[in-house]
Nucleic acid binder design. Structure first.
Length: 384
DNA sequence: CATCCGTGGGA
DNA sequence: TTCCCAAGGAT
């Protein structure tokens, strides 16, 4: 079967399916009055840019609430360039992959330089070239294509997880080689129509999210199943090839909530070069097999902060999984005894009143601790 | 080319 | 409960 002769049919069938079944109410794909844009009409590149970066490896449902919060805090490009990185991280807190937020912030200044402050509120002054967007940190070809096709309705291909899965199944191709990826890019490029690329790309992604799913694909509802080699001759489940799952290490972590005589608590800011760099945390570290967790906490605080503490009662223990490791946290309330705190393994240390903790960006494992601490101290906060 | 980077939804 | 993994990009 020659797929090449069916491009028009695939485009038409997918667009018809989209108008009946697609996700049509995505806020950044609507005009400011909430209505759907006409073909070729320009939408806010700012809102779309933010959304597309948030959507990297992150589900639409999760992104929605973060996007609203972001747009309330940084409603336009200029407001983002004027923000402090800590404010940006605070809005991003809980969304994960924090380098995305830092790169957005850096990119905002590059974009403003390119567009100019006076012109930045006029969408027609924003870049429309693939290379201009890909030059920004954190923007690859797929995100760039998504931004340009969404904002300007220009025919650029995308190749995110959804499209990769759909096209792999169309071709019944399950090789995860560079050459094969190149092939999928070419197919995506051949498929995207000149006249309605915004809806077409969205239709592809919606098909991937709603019908052509990783598990239990609903092929009987698929508008293009008759062009799909995997459906016709094989089992769609087998495409694309899945990565082998790897064993992830498990570690025990001891955490100290250190209070001084003013009832302030000690927090540290992670090194910029480390993961989650710039985020704040409660100090602590990995347990050695020969020691109990109280000894771990006392030792780590001496090593990383240079002070002696008294390890008191346990506040909470819980587990927290990252994609590459699984951690068991044990958190103890501690008292500052002696020494001068120094940031030996962090970029900054700070004594803060517990009621001010929410002013700092913390990764998710630490917000669990804050939430428990607030209950323990009787502090009411509903925005955790 | 393989690995790293976070989190929460959902099966 | 446990596990997979999502609108990827940088190194």
């Amino acid at each position: 079967m020659k797929l090449i002769t069916y491009f028009n049919d695939i485009q038409n069938d997918l667009l018809i399916w989209f108008s009946d079944n697609g996700r049509l109410r995505i806020p950044w794909k609507l005009k400011s009055d909430g209505s759907r844009p006409e073909t070729g009409e320009i939408l806010s590149p700012y809102g779309i840019w933010i959304a597309e970066v948030m959507l990297q490896q992150t589900q639409l449902k999760v992104v929605l609430r973060y996007w609203y919060k972001w747009m309330m805090t940084f409603p336009n490009l200029v407001s983002l360039t004027e923000a402090d990185e800590q404010e940006v991280l605070l809005v991003w807190q809980g969304l994960g992959y924090y380098s995305r937020a830092k790169r957005l912030h850096k990119s905002s200044k590059l974009l403003l330089n390119l567009i100019g402050e006076v012109n930045s509120s006029d969408f027609s002054f924003w870049p429309v070239e693939l290379d201009q967007w890909m030059a920004l940190p954190g923007i690859g070809r797929s995100t760039a294509g998504s931004i340009i096709s969404s904002a300007f309705d220009l025919p650029l291909p995308i190749l995110d997880g959804n499209v990769k899965r759909i096209l792999s199944r169309l071709l019944a191709s399950n090789k995860s080689t560079q050459k094969n990826t190149k092939r999928l890019w070419i197919l995506s490029e051949q498929l995207v129509p000149k006249d309605n690329p915004r809806d077409f790309n969205q239709a592809l992604m919606d098909l991937g999210a709603l019908v052509c799913t990783v598990k239990n694909p609903k092929c009987s509802f698929c508008p293009i199943r008759n062009y799909c080699l995997a459906f016709l001759k094989y089992d769609p489940i087998d495409f694309p090839k899945k990565d082998m799952k790897k064993v992830i290490p498990v570690q025990e972590i001891g955490i100290a909530l250190i209070f001084n005589n003013d009832e302030e608590i000690l927090i540290d800011q992670r090194l910029e070069k480390d993961s989650m760099g710039g985020m704040w945390e409660f100090p602590g570290g990995k347990k050695e097999s020969y020691e109990c967790i109280e000894k771990t906490i006392k030792r780590e605080i001496m090593e990383e902060i240079g002070i002696d503490i008294k390890v008191g009662e346990k506040l909470i223990s819980f587990e927290h999984s990252y994609s590459h490791k699984k951690l068991y946290f044990t958190v103890h309330l501690c008292e500052f005894l002696s020494g001068k705190p120094r940031p030996l393994a962090s970029q900054k240390l700070l004594w803060v009143d517990p009621s001010r903790l929410l002013e700092f960006p913390f990764p998710a494992a630490n917000t669990k601790i804050i939430s428990t601490l607030f209950k323990y101290l009787g502090i009411e906060k509903d925005n955790l």
